[in-house]
Amino acid sequence: MDIKEKVLEVLNNSEEPLKGGQIAEVSGIDKKEIDKAIKELKKEEKIISPKRCFYSINK
């Protein structure tokens, strides 16, 4: 499973928006890698940022 899929999985399982650091903590992946994946996922419009620095799945 690649990092973007892992980020989506963590966000999908969460009931509320998460920060990049929280996603890194839950997934066990380095925060820098998570930040890169978040940037790509936002560009692909797969995730949204309901408030600054928090992310959730774009439903």
Score class of each variant (00 low, 15 high):
56 S>W: 09
37 A>H: 11
6 K>A: 12
34 I>Y: 00
47 I>R: 07
38 I>N: 00
33 E>A: 08
19 K>V: 07
44 E>M: 08
8 L>V: 03
23 I>M: 02
6 K>M: 09
53 C>E: 05
49 S>T: 15
15 E>S: 11
31 K>H: 15
4 K>W: 03
8 L>S: 03
43 K>I: 15
30 D>G: 04
34 I>S: 01
16 E>W: 11
40 E>N: 15
2 D>Q: 13
44 E>S: 06
54 F>D: 01
8 L>I: 13
12 N>S: 04
49 S>E: 15
59 K>M: 15
12 N>M: 01
5 E>G: 01
42 K>A: 09
25 E>R: 10
18 L>V: 05
37 A>T: 08
23 I>S: 06
16 E>D: 07
58 N>S: 10
23 I>D: 01
58 N>I: 05
56 S>H: 04
27 S>K: 00
46 K>G: 01
31 K>S: 03
52 R>P: 15
2 D>N: 07
40 E>K: 12
22 Q>M: 03
1 M>I: 05
52 R>V: 08
26 V>T: 12
24 A>S: 10
6 K>Y: 06
51 K>G: 10
44 E>W: 02
20 G>N: 00
40 E>T: 12
19 K>E: 09
33 E>S: 09
18 L>T: 06
40 E>P: 10
12 N>E: 12
52 R>G: 10
